[in-house]
Amino acid sequence: MFEARLPQGDLLKKILEAVKDLVTDANFDCSSTGISLQAMDSSHVSLVSLLMRADGFDHFRCDRNISIGLNLLAMSKVVRCVGNNDAVTMKADDNGDLVTLMFESQDGSKVSDWQLRGLDIDSERLGIPSTDYSSVVTMPSAEFARICRDLSVIGDTVVITTTKEGVTFASKGELGTGKIALRQSAAIDDDADSPGVSIELQEPVSQSFALRYLSFFTKATPLAPTVTISMSNGVPLVVEYPVGDMGHIRFYLAPKVED
């Protein structure tokens, strides 16, 4: 059997909000080390990869590896009912046909039980090599969300360029052009809620990406105050948000290239 209890149920709520518009159905792959999920959007342009390590749960039991296939939109509707301080317990039988989600309020005064039908999803798992990226930008997640939203007014493509001076986001369209430049900056008083912008640069990078997908990724903003954007020329970019201290959610996006 599989059973896992997450004391911070709102993490699961934020994860579902982050992926439900990008991916419709996905497998939660459960093993003794934790839960992982990998899925592409329907156009195969982007990929989401989630990791929740077993040690981040206060109870985790997985007798044998199982894949629990779920419709993420249905799951997000159920998980929206999680109170912010509720704990969430996920359970599944050995074949993953039926999944139970149980929400408990902090004082134990309210318990709700939900059951979702598991789906048989035949998904291709891609092998993502571990890569040393040429440029790694860490910045406030809310700032990244705002830049994606603001530049979408002008065009559908953003050119992200890193140099030792900083990082620029530029877009152009029929209306005109827009460019936002960020310089490296220190965090304000080491306040985790006001992180600065930092750039680890091996080599400068300049690549084009579809703003539509980057905007989907920024639905993960409530998960963390910072986001990390890793890029090398000619390969997909990675946008990573930590999931508490138990894992991460990574979004990979294929670049736009000159025809």
Binding site: M40, S46, G127, P255, K256, D259
Partner: peptide, 14 residues
């Protein structure tokens, strides 16, 4: 013109 590449063209199936 720029064209959108596909993510599975970069990463082979595991």
């Amino acid at each position: 013109a720029k064209v959108q590449t596909k993510i599975d063209a970069f990463y082979l199936g595991a």
